[in-house]
Amino acid sequence: MEQVKRRLSCIVCPMSCQGEVTLENGSVTGITGFTCPRGEKYAREEVVAPKRTLTTTVRISGAQLPLLPVISKTALPKDKVVDCARFLSNIRVQAPVKEGDVVCADILGLGVDIVAARDLL
């Protein structure tokens, strides 16, 4: 039985809890040190399939600003974050846009929508 312990800093909230995940043969058998359920969930995912929320901008026409901030509706696979950002750098939308409007559906086939993070009228 191979047992591995990994120390992690939680990134869910600014508390930045330090915790430890125990892995046995690739599956999580113990989590300690995180002070909330969201932290535990993060730790479990982080050792198996790490995910990150992406925030970036897309270009917008017809608004008082040239850029619209956007956010991934749910977290993306960590290793796809840069690809998604590069993809979004080529997108242009037309004002008006409301916060939550989908700017790019199912980005790179990952099943995650990219939505506007603010209104731009």
Partner: peptide, 24 residues
């Protein structure tokens, strides 16, 4: 408005917002 990353408002709105979202 220029802090487009998320992580704002967990205490206030019980959700994780971007800077513009929180300001909005």
């Amino acid at each position: 408005q220029q802090c487009i990353h998320n992580g704002f408002g967990l205490h206030r709105f019980k959700e994780e917002l971007t800077g513009p979202g929180y300001a909005g």
